[in-house]
């Protein structure tokens, strides 16, 4: 495989955990809830997914357990943010700290253990193409995640369910007047986001880098939250953003291919620096932000 093909293939894999978490957060935020605990839920999912896969040798069980763990933690968030009408920023941070702590606690006994990387699937014909063929030889989750992105786009924009979710996020009082149970819909949206973040963590720890190291999520949950802002709450643009960050996280490989030697710390900082840059560029268009931002985002609703 040439280095270019390697980068192409790696970009999709690196983008997958970001995309899974960001798509979940998209639904949560579209329903009007700001969950900043994604990093913690991803970390918990990563630990639970790793421990279960390590012990059962069944990646599917690992993913399921991770989804449940993320979901459970998101329910704690929902209890605070929806049940007790707590400040959503503070509640998200609390969940983040809790998730990171639980993640280290659970992963501790398996520090530095590894898993077998799962087999890759090649799409017939397409995978045989020169150079870009590598794009079509990925693990199953990559394909499923991309398919899910399409489903989420379709549901949000072209289905009754999507209309309800958006209504609850844009104007919860009106949605309730129409007879929708705002808190229940928000609860479901938060739970979905939690399960997705949990699976995003499991992908990172069991497939992308199948090795347990404490703190391995390393800000990816936060980048996922930022991706929802860059994508201005639209699934298509979020996919694009995730691919960009997937490529950035391969900065080391790309720099090597270009023949430049840079300090590894500079390369590691690259995604964070670009996140700041993109936030500034996209948010500076205040008109577009106002048009796209979910109107009731982060505001508690007394049900």
């Amino acid at each position: 495989m040439t280095i270019l093909a390697f980068i192409l293939a790696g970009t999709l894999a690196a983008a997958t955990p970001l995309l899974l978490a960001a798509l979940g957060e998209l639904i949560t935020e579209r329903a009007g809830v700001l969950n900043l605990g994604i990093e913690g839920m991803m970390a918990l999912g990563a630990a639970v997914g790793f421990v279960v896969t390590y012990n059962t040798h069944a990646p599917v069980l690992g993913f399921a357990a991770a989804a449940l763990a993320g979901l459970a933690l998101s329910l704690v968030f929902a209890m605070l943010a929806l049940g007790f009408m707590a400040n959503q920023v503070a509640a998200g941070l609390a969940i983040g700290v809790l998730g990171l702590g639980l993640s280290s606690l659970i992963g501790k006994p398996l520090e530095s253990q590894t898993l077998d990387a799962p087999a890759k699937l090649a799409i017939p014909l397409l995978a045989d193409l020169p150079v870009i063929g590598a794009l079509f030889e990925q693990d199953l989750v990559v394909f499923l995640t991309l398919a899910l992105a399409v489903v989420i786009w379709a549901v949000l924009n072209h289905s009754k369910l999507g209309l309800i979710i958006r209504a609850v996020g844009e104007n919860p009082s009106a949605a309730r007047a129409l007879g929708f149970r705002v808190l229940r819909i928000r609860l479901a949206a938060v739970a979905f986001g939690g399960a997705m973040a949990g699976m995003a963590g499991a992908y990172a720890s069991t497939i992308y880098t199948p090795l347990w190291a404490d703190g391995m999520i390393a800000g990816r949950g936060w980048i996922a939250v930022a991706l929802v802002v860059f994508g201005t709450w639209a699934a298509g643009r979020i996919v694009f953003g995730a691919l960009l960050f997937g490529a950035l996280s391969l900065g080391g490989l790309i720099a090597q291919a270009a023949g430049v030697a840079l300090p590894s710390q500079l390369l590691a900082s690259l995604p964070y620096g670009v996140t700041i840059l993109m936030l500034a560029v996209i948010s500076s268009n205040r008109r577009r932000m106002r048009l796209n931002t979910v109107a009731s985002l982060g505001q508690p609703f007394a049900g």
Partner: peptide
């Protein structure tokens, strides 16, 4: 100046500070 969310920016700056 750019309306960039301070929650995300301060967090990203922390990750960069660690690398520095």
């Amino acid at each position: 100046r750019f309306n960039a969310n301070e929650i995300l920016v301060t967090l990203m700056l922390t990750l960069i500070a660690t690398q520095v």
